[in-house]
């Protein structure tokens, strides 16, 4: 029994561990080739991360970025997801919003950073707005698609047993829609982090991006890489603590049905 469990664990965790080691090895080789001024070693970066996490300002920057992304994700989920839900059911709303969604999706994130900085000045609100306006259309389109691709025959089944419109939505449609939204939320979260850091870097408002701007000004490559590592680590942690359990809880049946 024990060898079987060990073999399963090796199969499950072996390849990702090997991939991580391969990446760190390539990084170390590049460090040896280019030197510490251009590319600090993984160990130096880890020390810089530790230094950042040992200071209150480091935690404040981390909290500011994560808080903004979380808040923007929530806002976008409410507005983009809510509109997507309505548009999924109402053809007229969908047709009306289709060009708006296309235009918003086509707008580069950097353009929004510049525009919001001009409109609202370098502030917490402008960064929040930038993140929300970039990921909102993604959540909108994802929700519309989730509504449209749900299995309506299950709702017909419920109708045959006398289910009301609300009961059909609550017990059947919503379950299918939420299970389709897991990957969309994952993408939105990752994009939200990228946009937040970019916006903070340009506007120099407290956060990981602002720390990176500071590191750039001081040519402190260790701190710059530490902030990148922190952002990536944070994203991975949130994905595994929030998005994956959400996906597993609501989308397990899809994997079971495959």
């Amino acid at each position: 029994m024990l060898p079987i469990l060990a073999a399963r664990a090796a199969l499950r965790f072996g390849p990702p561990a090997f991939g991580t080691v391969l990446f760190l090895a390539a990084w170390q080789v590049a460090h040896w080739h280019y030197g510490a001024f251009i590319l600090p070693s993984p160990w130096q970066t880890l020390l810089a991360v530790w230094a950042t996490l040992s200071s209150a300002s480091g935690w404040a920057a981390l909290g500011a970025t994560f808080g903004r992304v979380g808040l923007a994700l929530g806002l976008s989920g409410l507005i983009g997801g809510g509109l997507g839900l309505v548009a999924g059911y109402l053809w007229l709303i969908r047709a009306t919003l289709a060009p708006v969604a296309t235009i918003l999706l086509g707008m580069p994130a950097t353009a929004w950073v510049i525009l919001t900085m001009i409109w609202f000045g370098p502030s917490h609100g402008s960064i929040l707005f930038t993140i929300a306006i970039v990921i909102g259309p993604i959540l909108y389109i994802g929700t519309v698609d989730a509504v449209l691709t749900r299995d309506r025959r299950l709702e017909d089944m419920a109708t045959s047993f006398g289910a009301s419109r609300w009961a059909r939505f609550r017990t059947i449609a919503l379950r299918q829609i939420l299970s389709s939204l897991g990957p969309v939320f994952g993408i939105a979260l990752a994009l939200g982090f990228k946009v937040a850091i970019m916006a903070e870097l340009v506007t120099n408002v407290a956060g990981l991006g602002a720390q990176m701007a500071q590191a750039r000004a001081h040519m402190d490559i260790d701190l710059a890489l530490a902030n990148v590592a922190l952002a990536v680590a944070g994203l991975v942690i949130i994905e595994h603590l929030v998005i994956r359990p959400f996906q597993t809880r609501l989308g397990q049946w899809k994997r079971g049905a495959a």
């Binding site: 025959r153 089944m157 045959s160 047993f161 059947i172 379950r175 299970s179 079971g256 049905a257």
Partner: peptide, 11 residues
């Protein structure tokens, strides 16, 4: 009602 292909809730 009994449907073709069962129409059971997959979750």
């Amino acid at each position: 009602m009994v449907f073709q292909q069962s129409r059971l809730l997959p979750w």
